[in-house]
């Protein structure tokens, strides 16, 4: 009976997500991130490098409207570093006493500055394509950081006979293979403070991990709590089963 029950449970769990796979299968390359697995955490150095890539490259087009500068303390930036990062941008505030909007340097409590005032402005500046917001992009794409890294390293020449739309680029891992964004990363585009060589591979790994953190900032706390709770429940289960056995002993 127990077998049957677990089979039913497993069956339901195995089928549901598998059922979502649709259309042409695109296989992502094998990669490992520090955040993989049930004990995975965010490699702070890599996430910080990833933030640098986002800040210097991606943020020119992609917003992260759900994040605030103060959140960066979670990836190991100091209070001063955060103040400096925030003060580096001008944010709109107001209205002041005269009823005027004004610009001021950012504060840690401010949201990440958005590169465009609104979606229409973003489209106009990007050949009609809307650069998606990156706040939860790792949760919003099948494969999460693995997909992001694959996409960033997946630019190549279109195969023979493939017709590319006007202003489009060929990408192995993008659904439909036609992506409006040109290859965003070039070797040595950023200069890492820790002297990690800034290859496209390295930068895409770092930024993918950074985006994973941005989408699931609770991940480490969640997994730590989960391990404790499952262990606790394991012990409780043994105890409860013992009590049940003892109570039922006189019946058989």
């Amino acid at each position: 009976m127990r077998m049957l029950k677990s089979l039913v449970l497993l069956g339901a769990m195995a089928i549901a997500p598998a059922a979502y796979a649709a259309g042409e299968e695109i296989h992502l390359p094998e990669t490992r991130f520090s955040s993989d697995g049930i004990f995975g955490t965010f490699d702070r150095a890599s996430v910080q490098r990833g933030f640098q890539v986002y800040r210097e490259v991606c943020s020119n087009c992609h917003s992260m409207r759900l994040l605030s500068y103060r959140n960066l303390s979670e990836i190991g930036l100091t209070e001063e570093q955060i103040r400096a990062v925030a003060a580096d941008v001008q944010v709109q505030d107001g209205p002041n006493d005269e009823g005027q909007m004004f610009e001021r340097p950012g504060r840690p409590s401010d949201r990440f500055r958005r590169p465009f005032a609104n979606d229409a402005a973003a489209r106009t500046a990007n050949n009609g394509a809307l650069p998606p917001d990156f706040s939860v992009i790792a949760k919003a794409r099948e494969g999460g950081p693995h997909y992001i890294q694959a996409l960033l390293t997946g630019y190549e020449d279109p195969p023979a006979g493939f017709t590319l739309g006007d202003g489009m680029n060929y990408n192995r891992y993008f659904p439909g293979h036609q992506i409006a964004m040109a290859a965003p990363l070039n070797p040595d585009q950023v200069e890492y403070a820790d002297h990690t060589p800034a290859t496209v591979e390295q930068m895409s790994r770092d930024v993918a991990l950074f985006l994973h953190w941005a989408a699931e900032p609770e991940l480490e706390q969640r997994r730590q709590m989960g391990i404790k709770i499952v262990l606790f429940l394991g012990v409780l289960g043994v105890l409860a089963y013992g009590v049940k056995r003892r109570i039922w002993a006189d019946l058989h």
């Binding site: 606790f232 012990v235 409780l236 105890l239 009590v243 109570i247 006189d250």
Partner: peptide, 20 residues
Amino acid sequence: SAPDTGGRRDFLTLATTAFT
């Protein structure tokens, strides 16, 4: 109802109750 089976069960029940 279940007859009381003595000290061992009491400890087990107590431990389970405490855990809960």
